[in-house]
Write a protein that binds this DNA or RNA. Sequence first.
RNA 1: GGCCCCUUCGUCUAGUGGUCCAGGACGUCUGGUUCUCAUCCAGAAAAUCGCGGGUUCGACUCCCGCAGGGGUCACCA
Length: 474
Amino acid sequence: MSDIVRTRFAPSPTGLLHVGGVRTALFAWLVARQKGGEFILRIEDTDRARHVEGAEQHIIDSLKALGLNYDEGPDIGGQYGPYRQSERLDSYKQWAQKLLDSGRAYADPFKPEEIQVFREQAQAEKRPFLYRNHRPENPPTWDGSMPLRFKSDPKPYTRHDEVMGDLSTGPETIDDFILIKSDGYPTYNFAHIVDDTEMHITHIIRGQEFLSSIPNYLNLYEALNLSPPTMATMPHILGPDGKKKLSKRDGAKDVLDYIRDGFLPEALLNFIASLGWNDGTEQEIFSLVNLIELFSLDRVQHSGARFDEQRLLWLNGAHIRELSLDNLYMLSETYWPAEAAESDEQYKMQVLKLVQERLKYLAELPELTRFFFIDLPRNPELISGHKQLSKLSAEEIKELLNQTKQSLEQSDFSLEDLTNRLNDLLETTEQKPAVLFSLIRVATTQAPFSPALADTLVVLGKKLSLARIEQQLA
RNA sequence: GGCCCCUUCGUCUAGUGGUCCAGGACGUCUGGUUCUCAUCCAGAAAAUCGCGGGUUCGACUCCCGCAGGGGUCACCA
């Protein structure tokens, strides 16, 4: 039991889960899965002011949509619950009492405004602010109405981070941070250590914003007589400008938006993993199974990576192309254009087969396939704007379409027969494919682009194809 | 300002002293695939390896300094 790997994802419900958060979750999940361990979801909802209604559900929905299943969590329970920090206040009180008893915690008698004065003083002198420089000599008894602080033991640390490598810091980074706020809720700094201990977490994987606080945590682990878990610190995912942390402003949609647009979970995870990780080979496309097998924390980049949506688009297209037709059909179910509602499965399968290689994401399905289901309005632009077709007179166009019609009327509309007839038409009309095929394509689709002509005609079928040619003639 | 982290093509990256006048991928451009879009294939442009010093026969790789970027210094996580 004690040597099973247990990792956790511990978001705070203060907003939507975005790509950066997903990456932390993904890597923690991968570590657990590849070691046959367990992955836990814990909600860190100790900040009542910033709590966002529905955020927890959004996080849960996102993880489920991505397939990052967890073994214990607020909605499914587990043997070390509850998994919501707001429901674990008794635990924090108990551990706080231990520190109080050993003289490693004390009540903070200052008002926030008073501390603010100290802080501004330090800032004016261009020194970092350290609360412990103001540590009261005879702190009052803690009655819960004021913050409880950790009595730190400043010292240098040298430690190993699974991602960052060996790190060292001096005693100046250690301070008396708050354990329990005056509202009775613990701070992250305290709560996560209690929870990770009680939940037997073996690997903490978290974002870079915690890097400079970790020495403080080590100090607290010591005071509690605990040995800290393995730690891994992830660099941030950056916005397109390459500077700031990725935010919604940068076009970083939340994960569910991507899922709704028809990005495949596997592609999304492949993309997110490759933002700062690779296996050292030239492989770019990884299945989830690949990722579980190959992932390792020590190959995670130390620097931030920019979010490049173009690359995501490409990767998603690549994953779509690797899907079996049946699979793609299942996943596409809700993306068809409204006009496809009446069409049968067999027809939609044929259509899907033709567009599979040009789909970048499933929500593109309607614009790529609409003409298979409905007669699009005549679009004269397609001829007047075409470099070759625009040179033909109305008479010439009519003549070409008539010849085409006559030939296709004799066709059984098999791919082979259509191909032969189209080739024959090239000879009898003495036209280049760029002219004849373009014209037929425009007439039968009224769309700016479509799959290959013969393939398209086969799927459209004889009746529809001829009807549309006649429409163009009218 | 203190402390900590980071720095290879536009972007994601390979690279752990010589096989790198730096490889792959996305993107871009060119050509081919009987028409368009996409796919696929072939090819091109694209990094004086942030800068400056060392160490070494030899450095993208080791050391030192500098610069730039980021994080942090909350009763937020």
